[in-house]
């Protein structure tokens, strides 16, 4: 780990001010990913600003019946909060399917948004080629061991996946990320928060280096109470998703009135499955409808030597998740 200077801040303004104009500085939240990456030599900040004492841990109802989650709320507290469990069970389930109880006690919501890929070639600097770690150096995964890699939205510069479960649920829920920078606050819609790799895979998000995530706001979605998160992974617990599905359905008898579907483990960002949502809208909520929609969503999917299985797996997972939600009372 490189040497760095360390300071604690007490309010968001001070935090933003402290790191203003310091591209090599970083905010330190739960630390579960940043400290790990610093141990691996992937992240090398020269200054850490500890934001753990900022008053950003609230989970509260908004006037429009949405819910505001403070950026420093711990993953475990969000997952177990009554508002989340009853109104957005998909978010609670997604959080509880991620990491371990210990890590969920440490990890913050803001930090979870900024998790970096677990692509082996990114995580180990002994591999020389990684466009995300070292722009222009190439992609070791393209012709390497790419079992965990992307099948949608990738570029020939990067086929890494976003590792978060929570973000898959947030993508389905149309969350809004509130951020604060030296010039004040702004809002970023969830779909615009994370990026596809394109020619700039080194940029995971549209957050500026000197901006601080303040909260994540969930809009009121009445049917989100009827939602589910399905995660398929190599172990029964404590593993990243090979494929995951966040799904919510609004049904009128057996007809789909509205749907929210997002996929994890398949792309550089949480993948909102707009095609699935459009395809099943107005149709009867049955396996044939779901399968056809899954086929449409995955039509553009591209597999590599070791991950092509994900294409069929994603289709089956979409069908399974939607069927589960449809069967809910």
């Amino acid at each position: 780990m490189n040497p760095f200077s360390y300071s604690r801040v007490a309010d968001p303004g001070e935090a933003v001010h402290t790191l203003a104009g310091k591209p090599q500085g970083k905010f330190l939240g739960g630390g579960t990913n940043l400290i790990d990456l610093m141990k691996m030599g992937v992240e090398t900040p020269n200054e850490l600003v500890d934001i753990n004492r900022l008053p950003l841990t609230q989970i509260e109802e908004l006037p429009d019946k949405g819910v505001r989650i403070g950026a420093l709320a711990r993953n475990s507290d969000v997952a177990e909060h009554e508002l989340i469990k009853t109104r957005y069970p998909v978010l609670s389930l997604a959080l509880l399917s991620g990491a371990s109880p210990q890590l969920r006690n440490m990890a913050t919501v803001g930090g979870n948004l900024l998790q970096r890929t677990r692509c082996y070639y990114f995580y180990d600097p002994a591999f020389p080629a990684c466009n995300k770690r070292k722009p222009g150096s190439g992609c070791g995964a393209l012709d390497g061991y790419n079992r965990i890699h992307a099948i949608l939205g990738q570029s020939d510069q990067c086929i890494a996946t976003h590792p978060s479960d929570m973000c898959v649920a947030l993508a389905a829920l149309d969350a809004v990320v509130r951020v604060r920078g030296p010039k004040g606050e702004r809002e970023i819609s969830f779909g615009n928060f994370h990026r596809l790799p394109g020619n700039t895979p080194e940029r995971d998000t549209n957050l500026a280096p000197d901006e601080l995530i303040v909260s994540v706001d969930l809009p009121a979605i009445s049917f989100a109470a009827r939602s589910h998160y399905l995660k398929v992974r190599d172990r029964a617990s404590y593993a990243f998703a090979l494929v995951s599905v966040a799904a919510a359905l609004d049904l009128d008898s057996n007809k789909v009135k509205a749907a929210r579907v997002a996929l994890g483990g398949v792309a550089h960002k949480p993948w909102r499955a707009h095609k699935v949502e459009t395809e099943i809208n107005g149709k009867s909520a049955d396996e044939n409808t779901f399968r056809a929609a899954a086929e449409a969503e995955l039509a553009a999917a591209k597999g590599y030597k070791y991950n092509s299985f994900k294409i069929e797996l994603a289709k089956r997972a979409i069908v399974c998740a939607l069927s589960t939600v449809a069967a809910m009372a």
Binding site: Y6, I35, D36, M106
Partner: peptide, 10 residues
């Protein structure tokens, strides 16, 4: 918590 992923100064 995992004490390996948190700094003592925190």
């Amino acid at each position: 918590i995992n004490s390996c992923l948190t700094l003592a100064v925190m």
